[in-house]
Write a protein that binds this DNA or RNA. Structure first.
Lengths: 206, 206
DNA sequence: TAGATTGTTAATCGATTAACAATC
DNA sequence: TAGATTGTTAATCGATTAACAATC
């Protein structure tokens, strides 16, 4: 219903709003305004109001936004009113850190399996998970109806593993390998490459 | 010289171009075109030409771009014709992964120290580095003239550590803590929060 | 030369901001 | 009521794309 034409750039800011609202809530706050949110985020108040207005009317004139209410609405919009099971592929340092990261569970995601192709790692424990063989990935991911994966394998294997994930029904991939992935249109990919961020900043260094 | 008004969004794409050029170079390729680059990156050829034209003329009509030459020019623009020493603050899982990550050295950065405030970790080896106490950070960072830091401490301590880093002369911070940092105008911050990426994708999941 | 591709200008598109009536 | 802040419209700003002369 006039839904899928919301700009992705707007969608991308919602998690930022949510994070700040949850921080405010943890501080014991009840109510905020677009102005205050904007100041904490470095975003204009007008933009926050405009972004939110794409999804409904969540505030009260003269008062602002009820923090918990708005946070919950944003959670619903982002489909975070459930917890998504996520698999980690690659049990190296990055996969290890991801599988142990405590910051997922209360933000809508639960790591449920860890995979690797190294026989020395398969069967070992990493972050509380027994590392499974990538050979088992298609069956396990499909059976568990996993839709989200974090990819932490070497760049040379990233596309191949991606193809497996897509075939097994995964629709969202967070890719830590420094390489562009080719996926069907209905599969989303987000990229994390710390070096890109560092290089972007070094432009401004003397 | 008509220099500092280049949009940051353009600067942000240069590392992406560089990464692709270096990949092509590793494939043994000599020459490419804005069209080919665009296809590999999912960016229009016109945009790539426009971006590059902000910095000079690097191509030849009818031929395209010499890959190694263009890569080197971009490296110079991004100040990557030297290697920047970087410190890692926080020797938890993320800091551990960062300090061992092999992908920095050939892309312009060298991890040179690791800090933590946990007495149980100080003096221990992490990724080939002896973990230093955060108490030593101001002196060590200033003496070594470190300009770049990666921050992997709990959110609650991130701002405080940031203030120390800034005071010690750091001008670029890659922040893994899920929190907005306040810094002076001449200090750049980039953020990595995997959950933001996951949440952005979950919008598109059913 | 003919074909290809650059660098650049002008046109288009989209995102951000300013402003304000509505209203709590 | 008076003050504050929303949701929204119109104005502005900036980024992307299309098109093409220049030229290798």
């Amino acid at each position: 219903m006039g839904n899928e034409m919301i700009p992705d750039i707007v969608v991308g800011r919602l998690p930022l709003y949510l994070r700040t609202l949850q921080l405010m809530s943890a501080e014991g706050r009840q109510v905020t305004s677009s102005q205050e949110l904007g100041e904490r985020l470095g975003i204009s108040a007008a933009q926050i109001r405009k972004d939110l207005s794409q999804f409904g009317e969540f505030g009260k004139q003269g008062t602002g936004y009820h923090i918990d209410y708005l946070a919950n609405q944003i959670k619903k919009i982002l489909h975070l009113n459930k917890s998504w099971d996520v698999v980690v592929v690659g049990a190296g340092d990055v996969g290890h850190a991801l599988s142990r990261y405590q910051g997922f569970s209360n933000r809508g995601f639960t790591v449920s399996m860890v995979f690797d192709n190294d026989p020395a790692k398969i069967g070992q424990k990493v972050g509380g998970f027994i590392v499974e063989s990538i050979a088992e990935l298609p069956e396990l991911v499909e059976k568990a109806q996993i839709k989200v994966a974090m990819l932490a394998v070497p760049a040379a294997q990233a596309q191949q593993v991606t193809d497996m994930l897509v075939k097994a029904g995964v629709k969202a991939i967070l890719n830590y390998a420094p390489i562009n992935l080719l996926v069907p249109q209905d599969v989303k990919v987000q990229y994390i490459d710390p070096v890109l961020h560092l290089q972007r900043m070094s432009y401004y260094l003397e």
